Simulated assay, not measured.
Amino acid sequence: MNKKLRPIERTVACLDVHDDVVKKVILRCAPEGWNIMLADSYDDTHQKTLIACAEMILTGWAAVPAWMFDAPNLRLVQKFGAGYDKIDINAARKKGICVAVASGMNADPVSELVVFLVLGLYRKFRYLDETIRSGKWVKSEMRAKAHSLREKKFAILGLGAIGKAVAKRVQAFGAKVIYHNPTPLGANEEAALNVQYCTFDELIATADILSLHLPLTPDTRGIIDAVQLSRMKLSAILINTARGELIVESDLIEALRYGRLLGAGLDVFQNEPLSNDNALLGFDNVMLTPHIGGAVFDNVQNMATHCFNNMKLFMAGQPLPFRDVIVKGNSMV
Protein backbone atom coordinates (compact mmCIF):
# COMPACT_ATOMS: atom_id res chain seq x y z
CA MET A 1 0.00 0.00 0.00
CA ASN A 2 1.34 3.40 -0.99
CA LYS A 3 1.84 5.82 1.86
CA LYS A 4 0.76 9.39 1.40
CA LEU A 5 3.82 11.64 1.24
CA ARG A 6 4.00 14.30 3.92
CA PRO A 7 3.98 17.83 2.47
CA ILE A 8 7.31 19.64 2.69
CA GLU A 9 7.06 22.28 5.40
CA ARG A 10 7.94 25.78 4.26
CA THR A 11 8.15 28.89 6.39
CA VAL A 12 6.52 32.12 5.25
CA ALA A 13 6.71 35.44 7.12
CA CYS A 14 3.67 37.64 6.45
CA LEU A 15 4.84 41.15 7.29
CA ASP A 16 1.48 42.96 7.20
CA VAL A 17 -0.81 43.37 10.21
CA HIS A 18 -4.27 42.14 9.18
CA ASP A 19 -7.70 41.92 10.78
CA ASP A 20 -8.59 38.46 12.06
CA VAL A 21 -11.04 37.77 9.22
CA VAL A 22 -8.31 38.48 6.66
CA LYS A 23 -5.82 36.30 8.55
CA LYS A 24 -8.25 33.37 8.42
CA VAL A 25 -8.57 33.63 4.64
CA ILE A 26 -4.79 33.82 4.16
CA LEU A 27 -4.26 30.78 6.38
CA ARG A 28 -6.99 28.88 4.56
CA CYS A 29 -5.28 29.54 1.22
CA ALA A 30 -1.83 28.46 2.41
CA PRO A 31 -0.46 25.09 1.23
CA GLU A 32 -0.94 22.19 3.61
CA GLY A 33 1.84 21.81 6.15
CA TRP A 34 3.39 25.24 5.60
CA ASN A 35 4.31 27.38 8.60
CA ILE A 36 2.66 30.79 8.10
CA MET A 37 3.85 33.40 10.59
CA LEU A 38 1.58 36.44 10.79
CA ALA A 39 2.79 39.84 11.97
CA ASP A 40 1.32 41.53 15.02
CA SER A 41 3.32 44.73 14.60
CA TYR A 42 5.34 46.72 12.07
CA ASP A 43 8.06 47.29 14.68
CA ASP A 44 11.50 46.43 13.30
CA THR A 45 12.33 44.14 16.23
CA HIS A 46 9.15 42.12 15.71
CA GLN A 47 9.66 41.97 11.94
CA LYS A 48 13.27 40.83 12.40
CA THR A 49 12.12 37.98 14.63
CA LEU A 50 9.43 37.07 12.11
CA ILE A 51 11.84 36.67 9.19
CA ALA A 52 14.69 35.03 11.13
CA CYS A 53 13.84 31.51 9.88
CA ALA A 54 11.65 32.38 6.91
CA GLU A 55 12.31 31.05 3.43
CA MET A 56 9.76 33.41 1.95
CA ILE A 57 8.30 36.82 2.76
CA LEU A 58 4.74 37.83 1.88
CA THR A 59 4.21 41.59 2.03
CA GLY A 60 1.58 44.06 0.95
CA TRP A 61 2.03 47.38 2.74
CA ALA A 62 5.10 46.55 4.80
CA ALA A 63 8.50 47.62 3.51
CA VAL A 64 11.29 45.15 2.79
CA PRO A 65 14.49 47.15 3.39
CA ALA A 66 18.01 45.96 2.64
CA TRP A 67 18.62 44.45 6.09
CA MET A 68 15.82 41.95 5.64
CA PHE A 69 17.70 40.34 2.76
CA ASP A 70 20.35 39.24 5.26
CA ALA A 71 17.90 36.67 6.68
CA PRO A 72 19.86 33.40 6.31
CA ASN A 73 17.11 31.24 4.77
CA LEU A 74 15.34 33.84 2.64
CA ARG A 75 14.81 32.82 -0.99
CA LEU A 76 11.72 34.72 -2.21
CA VAL A 77 9.88 37.97 -1.51
CA GLN A 78 6.32 37.82 -2.81
CA LYS A 79 4.32 41.05 -3.02
CA PHE A 80 0.65 40.87 -1.99
CA GLY A 81 -0.13 43.30 -4.79
CA ALA A 82 1.74 44.83 -7.73
CA GLY A 83 3.78 47.85 -6.59
CA TYR A 84 7.28 46.94 -5.43
CA ASP A 85 8.74 50.37 -4.65
CA LYS A 86 9.01 49.54 -0.91
CA ILE A 87 11.14 46.47 -1.62
CA ASP A 88 14.90 47.08 -1.88
CA ILE A 89 15.41 45.65 -5.35
CA ASN A 90 19.16 46.30 -5.38
CA ALA A 91 19.59 44.29 -2.18
CA ALA A 92 17.52 41.45 -3.67
CA ARG A 93 19.73 41.34 -6.77
CA LYS A 94 22.91 41.45 -4.69
CA LYS A 95 21.74 38.51 -2.55
CA GLY A 96 20.26 36.54 -5.46
CA ILE A 97 16.79 36.56 -3.91
CA CYS A 98 13.72 36.35 -6.13
CA VAL A 99 11.16 39.16 -5.99
CA ALA A 100 7.70 38.56 -7.44
CA VAL A 101 4.45 40.50 -7.59
CA ALA A 102 0.83 39.55 -8.17
CA SER A 103 0.38 41.32 -11.49
CA GLY A 104 -3.19 42.32 -12.29
CA MET A 105 -4.74 40.79 -9.18
CA ASN A 106 -5.83 44.21 -7.87
CA ALA A 107 -7.17 45.40 -11.21
CA ASP A 108 -10.87 45.06 -10.41
CA PRO A 109 -10.99 46.79 -7.00
CA VAL A 110 -8.60 49.57 -8.03
CA SER A 111 -10.53 50.28 -11.23
CA GLU A 112 -13.76 50.42 -9.22
CA LEU A 113 -12.18 53.04 -6.96
CA VAL A 114 -11.12 55.09 -9.99
CA VAL A 115 -14.73 55.20 -11.22
CA PHE A 116 -15.92 56.14 -7.72
CA LEU A 117 -13.45 59.03 -7.49
CA VAL A 118 -14.35 60.34 -10.95
CA LEU A 119 -18.09 60.19 -10.29
CA GLY A 120 -17.61 61.62 -6.82
CA LEU A 121 -15.88 64.67 -8.26
CA TYR A 122 -18.18 65.10 -11.24
CA ARG A 123 -21.39 64.64 -9.23
CA LYS A 124 -20.13 66.51 -6.12
CA PHE A 125 -20.69 63.63 -3.68
CA ARG A 126 -18.91 65.35 -0.79
CA TYR A 127 -20.91 68.54 -1.18
CA LEU A 128 -24.22 66.72 -1.55
CA ASP A 129 -23.62 64.52 1.49
CA GLU A 130 -22.55 67.44 3.67
CA THR A 131 -25.42 69.72 2.64
CA ILE A 132 -28.17 67.15 3.03
CA ARG A 133 -26.84 66.22 6.48
CA SER A 134 -26.98 69.91 7.45
CA GLY A 135 -30.62 70.19 6.40
CA LYS A 136 -30.11 71.79 2.99
CA TRP A 137 -31.77 70.62 -0.23
CA VAL A 138 -29.49 71.79 -3.07
CA LYS A 139 -31.14 69.99 -5.97
CA SER A 140 -31.71 73.16 -7.99
CA GLU A 141 -27.98 74.01 -7.94
CA MET A 142 -26.71 70.79 -9.42
CA ARG A 143 -27.50 71.23 -13.10
CA ALA A 144 -24.95 74.06 -13.18
CA LYS A 145 -22.35 72.24 -11.05
CA ALA A 146 -22.42 68.52 -11.88
CA HIS A 147 -20.96 66.71 -14.89
CA SER A 148 -21.36 63.39 -16.70
CA LEU A 149 -18.73 60.91 -17.87
CA ARG A 150 -20.51 60.50 -21.19
CA GLU A 151 -18.39 61.56 -24.19
CA LYS A 152 -15.53 62.69 -21.96
CA LYS A 153 -11.96 62.00 -23.07
CA PHE A 154 -10.66 59.62 -20.41
CA ALA A 155 -6.85 59.56 -20.54
CA ILE A 156 -4.97 56.62 -19.02
CA LEU A 157 -1.26 57.05 -18.40
CA GLY A 158 -0.04 53.46 -18.18
CA LEU A 159 -2.38 50.97 -19.85
CA GLY A 160 -1.45 47.79 -17.99
CA ALA A 161 -3.78 45.39 -16.22
CA ILE A 162 -5.36 48.07 -14.02
CA GLY A 163 -5.51 50.63 -16.82
CA LYS A 164 -7.30 48.13 -19.05
CA ALA A 165 -9.82 47.37 -16.29
CA VAL A 166 -10.43 51.12 -15.90
CA ALA A 167 -10.92 51.49 -19.66
CA LYS A 168 -13.58 48.79 -19.70
CA ARG A 169 -15.52 50.37 -16.86
CA VAL A 170 -15.49 53.98 -18.03
CA GLN A 171 -16.48 52.95 -21.55
CA ALA A 172 -19.68 51.60 -20.01
CA PHE A 173 -20.44 55.23 -19.09
CA GLY A 174 -19.84 56.38 -22.67
CA ALA A 175 -16.34 57.82 -22.16
CA LYS A 176 -13.76 57.77 -24.96
CA VAL A 177 -10.46 56.20 -23.80
CA ILE A 178 -7.07 57.48 -24.91
CA TYR A 179 -3.82 56.20 -23.46
CA HIS A 180 -0.06 56.55 -23.43
CA ASN A 181 2.48 53.77 -22.84
CA PRO A 182 6.21 53.90 -23.58
CA THR A 183 5.47 51.21 -26.17
CA PRO A 184 2.03 51.38 -27.82
CA LEU A 185 -0.19 48.31 -27.92
CA GLY A 186 -0.60 46.50 -31.20
CA ALA A 187 -3.39 47.58 -33.53
CA ASN A 188 -5.43 44.44 -32.88
CA GLU A 189 -5.30 44.88 -29.10
CA GLU A 190 -6.17 48.57 -29.39
CA ALA A 191 -9.18 47.65 -31.50
CA ALA A 192 -10.26 44.94 -29.05
CA LEU A 193 -10.00 47.37 -26.13
CA ASN A 194 -11.46 50.29 -28.14
CA VAL A 195 -8.64 52.61 -27.05
CA GLN A 196 -6.56 55.16 -28.95
CA TYR A 197 -2.84 55.79 -28.48
CA CYS A 198 -1.64 59.36 -27.92
CA THR A 199 1.73 60.93 -27.38
CA PHE A 200 2.41 61.96 -23.79
CA ASP A 201 2.03 65.66 -24.65
CA GLU A 202 -1.27 65.09 -26.46
CA LEU A 203 -2.60 62.98 -23.60
CA ILE A 204 -1.91 65.70 -21.05
CA ALA A 205 -3.30 68.53 -23.18
CA THR A 206 -6.55 66.88 -24.31
CA ALA A 207 -7.64 64.84 -21.26
CA ASP A 208 -10.92 65.59 -19.51
CA ILE A 209 -9.89 63.00 -16.91
CA LEU A 210 -6.26 61.95 -16.45
CA SER A 211 -5.83 58.70 -14.51
CA LEU A 212 -2.34 57.53 -13.49
CA HIS A 213 -1.47 53.83 -13.60
CA LEU A 214 2.31 53.74 -13.74
CA PRO A 215 4.79 51.95 -11.48
CA LEU A 216 7.05 54.23 -9.44
CA THR A 217 10.52 54.24 -11.00
CA PRO A 218 13.26 56.87 -11.33
CA ASP A 219 11.79 57.73 -14.74
CA THR A 220 8.20 58.13 -13.54
CA ARG A 221 8.85 59.91 -10.23
CA GLY A 222 7.41 63.43 -10.50
CA ILE A 223 6.12 62.83 -14.03
CA ILE A 224 3.14 65.11 -13.27
CA ASP A 225 4.67 68.42 -12.23
CA ALA A 226 3.91 72.12 -12.60
CA VAL A 227 4.72 72.04 -16.32
CA GLN A 228 2.31 69.21 -17.08
CA LEU A 229 -0.40 70.56 -14.76
CA SER A 230 -0.23 73.92 -16.56
CA ARG A 231 -0.88 72.15 -19.87
CA MET A 232 -4.04 70.41 -18.67
CA LYS A 233 -7.51 71.77 -19.33
CA LEU A 234 -8.94 73.99 -16.59
CA SER A 235 -11.94 71.65 -16.65
CA ALA A 236 -9.83 68.50 -16.20
CA ILE A 237 -9.65 66.25 -13.16
CA LEU A 238 -6.63 64.24 -12.06
CA ILE A 239 -6.94 60.75 -10.55
CA ASN A 240 -4.07 58.91 -8.86
CA THR A 241 -4.50 55.40 -7.45
CA ALA A 242 -0.95 54.28 -8.33
CA ARG A 243 1.83 55.92 -6.29
CA GLY A 244 1.83 59.36 -4.71
CA GLU A 245 5.33 60.20 -5.88
CA LEU A 246 4.22 60.19 -9.51
CA ILE A 247 2.92 63.70 -8.79
CA VAL A 248 4.92 66.61 -7.42
CA GLU A 249 2.46 67.20 -4.60
CA SER A 250 3.41 70.83 -3.97
CA ASP A 251 2.79 71.59 -7.66
CA LEU A 252 -0.64 69.94 -7.51
CA ILE A 253 -1.54 71.96 -4.42
CA GLU A 254 -0.51 75.15 -6.23
CA ALA A 255 -2.61 74.21 -9.29
CA LEU A 256 -5.67 73.52 -7.12
CA ARG A 257 -5.16 76.71 -5.13
CA TYR A 258 -5.28 78.83 -8.29
CA GLY A 259 -8.14 76.96 -9.96
CA ARG A 260 -6.08 75.34 -12.71
CA LEU A 261 -7.95 72.04 -12.34
CA LEU A 262 -11.57 71.13 -11.79
CA GLY A 263 -10.51 68.70 -9.08
CA ALA A 264 -8.44 65.71 -8.02
CA GLY A 265 -9.15 62.24 -6.66
CA LEU A 266 -6.22 60.78 -4.72
CA ASP A 267 -5.75 57.40 -3.07
CA VAL A 268 -1.98 57.75 -2.74
CA PHE A 269 0.31 60.49 -1.47
CA GLN A 270 3.90 61.63 -1.37
CA ASN A 271 4.06 60.79 2.33
CA GLU A 272 1.75 58.22 3.93
CA PRO A 273 -0.15 58.41 6.16
CA LEU A 274 -1.24 61.92 5.20
CA SER A 275 -0.35 64.51 7.85
CA ASN A 276 -3.13 66.50 9.53
CA ASP A 277 -1.70 69.77 8.18
CA ASN A 278 -1.46 68.67 4.54
CA ALA A 279 -2.91 71.37 2.31
CA LEU A 280 -4.84 68.80 0.25
CA LEU A 281 -7.25 68.44 3.17
CA GLY A 282 -8.43 72.02 2.68
CA PHE A 283 -9.85 71.73 -0.84
CA ASP A 284 -13.54 71.09 -1.45
CA ASN A 285 -12.81 69.81 -4.96
CA VAL A 286 -10.48 67.02 -3.80
CA MET A 287 -11.56 63.51 -2.81
CA LEU A 288 -9.11 61.56 -0.65
CA THR A 289 -8.87 57.90 0.34
CA PRO A 290 -6.08 56.26 2.43
CA HIS A 291 -4.34 54.02 -0.16
CA ILE A 292 -7.11 51.43 -0.19
CA GLY A 293 -7.46 50.81 -3.92
CA GLY A 294 -6.95 47.06 -3.63
CA ALA A 295 -8.13 46.69 -0.05
CA VAL A 296 -11.41 44.82 -0.42
CA PHE A 297 -12.25 41.65 1.48
CA ASP A 298 -13.72 40.01 -1.64
CA ASN A 299 -10.28 39.94 -3.28
CA VAL A 300 -8.23 38.52 -0.39
CA GLN A 301 -8.73 34.89 -1.41
CA ASN A 302 -7.87 35.58 -5.06
CA MET A 303 -4.73 37.47 -4.07
CA ALA A 304 -3.59 34.96 -1.45
CA THR A 305 -4.15 32.01 -3.78
CA HIS A 306 -2.12 33.68 -6.52
CA CYS A 307 0.74 34.53 -4.13
CA PHE A 308 0.92 31.04 -2.64
CA ASN A 309 0.82 29.51 -6.13
CA ASN A 310 3.87 31.59 -7.02
CA MET A 311 5.60 30.38 -3.87
CA LYS A 312 4.82 26.74 -4.65
CA LEU A 313 6.14 27.13 -8.19
CA PHE A 314 9.33 28.77 -6.98
CA MET A 315 10.01 26.15 -4.33
CA ALA A 316 9.46 23.43 -6.91
CA GLY A 317 11.96 25.07 -9.26
CA GLN A 318 9.24 25.92 -11.77
CA PRO A 319 8.98 29.25 -13.65
CA LEU A 320 6.66 31.94 -12.32
CA PRO A 321 4.32 33.94 -14.58
CA PHE A 322 6.71 36.22 -16.45
CA ARG A 323 4.71 39.36 -15.64
CA ASP A 324 5.13 38.62 -11.93
CA VAL A 325 8.92 38.34 -11.89
CA ILE A 326 10.78 41.50 -10.86
CA VAL A 327 14.05 39.87 -9.76
CA LYS A 328 14.69 36.35 -11.00
CA GLY A 329 17.01 35.42 -8.14
CA ASN A 330 18.68 32.06 -7.69
CA SER A 331 16.76 28.96 -8.74
CA MET A 332 15.63 26.43 -6.15
CA VAL A 333 16.94 23.57 -8.30
Rank of each mutant, 00 (worst) to 15 (best):
M311Q: 15
E272Y: 10
A255I: 05
C307H: 00
F269Y: 15
Y258E: 08
I253L: 09
L266H: 04
G244A: 12
N278H: 15
V286E: 06
P290E: 13
D284C: 03
A242S: 14
E254C: 09
L274Y: 05
D277N: 14
G293I: 02
F283W: 02
A279E: 13
A236I: 10
T217L: 13
N240Q: 11
N240G: 05
V286Y: 10
H291A: 13
N299H: 05
G294Y: 01
P218Q: 04
M287I: 15
L280H: 02
A279F: 05
N309H: 12
F283K: 03
F269W: 11
H291N: 13
N276V: 14
V286R: 06
V300R: 01
I237M: 08
V268T: 12
F297E: 00
L256W: 04
I224M: 05
D267N: 09
E245Q: 14
N299V: 00
T220D: 00
Y258M: 13
G293K: 05
R231I: 08
V300H: 01
L262A: 15
P218A: 03
P218K: 06
F269Q: 03
G265K: 01
G263Y: 01
T305D: 00
D277P: 03
V227L: 15
L288T: 04
L238M: 10
Q270C: 15
I247H: 11
I247L: 08
V296C: 00
D219M: 13
D284R: 13
L234Y: 12
Q270Y: 15
M287A: 02
A226E: 15
N240D: 13
Q228V: 11
L280T: 05
F283S: 04
H291E: 11
Q301T: 04
K312H: 15
A304S: 15
S250I: 11
H213A: 13
S250P: 06
V227Q: 13
D298Y: 06
G282L: 01
